[in-house]
Design a protein around this nucleic acid. Structure first.
Lengths: 241, 241
DNA sequence: CGGACCATTGATAATTGTCAAAATTCGTGG
DNA sequence: CCACGAATTTTGACAATTATCAATGGTCCG
């Protein structure tokens, strides 16, 4: 039986979209061509300036991808979570990674070297098509982020991020949807490209309006996801005055 | 001999990265599985909300990709030029296009339906790998745009856009690099996510500093590409005061 | 040459960033 | 479990930047 010793999850690879079309025996073969890696909180999974050398798939934990700007602050590009790919865009593009990926928690991950992965593509051509599909999705998702990032109203950007968090990390609680935030306020502000203080003020405003409730620095409850979604869609934010 | 009747260019498909590895006879076969399409200036190549239905490769002309926001303004995502792909991310993702692509000039293009293109992938598996590579490049390029878009200083974003234009459309002239701009000031402002007037003022400032010279509404000369590149790299823009 | 469209400039209002201080939260050790 | 110090966050006041509105000046094309 295929069991992931690292993350404790039965057939954890099967849940990765890229491999979902494979049978159990094929997954078994896959398992021979990869290595499990563990990263402590704060450790780098990928380093800006170094070639990724392969694909990493997260089994457990979260990580942030960021670039260092000239003035020393970091601009966060992605938050990676379980079943996300890291470095897949460099599989056939021999370039240095443009960002660093650092574990936000302890992370376990499956790693395929470029060589191993190309072998797998030869073995199972169906995975090529699947990879094309996944890269297409990634592109589409980036295009979405690009647009929300281009929105002028800061409230709209914040609302878009929170709505995204609801989708990815939301858990139903008794008062609303609980989110265990992957980033600190400072991290979220960097992700959104605004000052920490601005984010703070806007979140306080959302709280006064009854849209969210802050439980702690790392946990908030979304009381009115509908209002959030609405102000994320709308450039002309109806809920700020 | 393989000759593109539409754009007048000999072996124009050969210059498309996706097909660069193919021989002349293979290109010949390819030509049987596609249609040439012509679009007048202002015509839509792709429509927001409709499935792309295939891949379009531009042979001649430029086009803009944009989304309509709730308040009616358009947010421009891409400028497509010769040899760029349109809709390749939807090849295996059956979704409606998230943006409209409109011809900025008269455009001629090669079109492969999804069905045709999948046949081609079956026929030439090497193209799959090439497509993975191209999608990877697109992802990397989007990640770059995402970062420059996240830069707080407007001067830096403008400088990044102009540097990009230098790479794509720049022609050496006697005083510097001449650029025939693909967009109006309003278009560029939408692309950069700022007000038309702000862009105007910053461009005037660049002109006063001797970095650029405006020849007409659609043509500028870059006198100091080095300064431009520097202020695009730097969050802490050294050339504004 | 004229008219429509586009771009620039000026003045002002709104928004956001910055700096400093106060308040809260977090983790650790008692 | 509580207390304490460190780190993080929130808030306030002010400065800087950008958006908006309005008027002027240019450019393009018949």
């Amino acid at each position: 039986m295929l069991k992931c010793m690292e993350c404790g999850d039965e057939s954890c690879l099967k849940k990765v979209p890229l491999f979902s079309s494979l049978g159990d025996d094929e997954l078994e073969k896959l398992a021979h061509r990869m290595t499990f890696k563990n990263y402590d909180k704060g450790q780098d999974i990928l380093s800006q300036g170094k070639a990724p050398g392969g694909i990493t798939i997260i089994c457990r934990g979260r990580a942030k991808a960021y670039r260092l700007t000239a003035n020393g602050t970091e601009k966060i590009l992605y938050i990676f979570a379980r079943h996300d790919y890291i470095g897949e865009q460099y599989l056939f593009v021999n370039k240095a990674a443009a960002y660093t990926v650092t574990a936000l928690q302890n992370v376990s991950a499956a790693f395929f070297s470029t060589k191993q992965f190309r072998e797998i593509l030869n073995l199972y051509p169906a995975i090529s098509l699947r990879l094309i599909e996944e890269l297409g999705r990634r592109t589409i998702s980036l295009e979405n982020i690009l647009q929300t990032g281009g929105m002028r109203k800061t409230e709209a950007r914040i609302a878009a991020m929170l709505s995204d968090f609801v989708r990815k990390y939301g858990v139903f609680g008794k008062d609303g949807i609980e989110i265990s935030l992957p980033l600190s306020r400072e991290g979220m502000a960097n992700y959104l490209g605004m000052a920490r203080e601005t984010l703070s003020r806007k979140l306080s405003a959302f709280e006064k309006e009854g849209v969210i409730r802050s439980l702690s620095n790392k946990k908030i409850v979304i009381l009115r996801p509908d209002i959030l979604r609405k102000s994320a869609e709308d450039e002309t934010d109806a809920y700020s005055r």
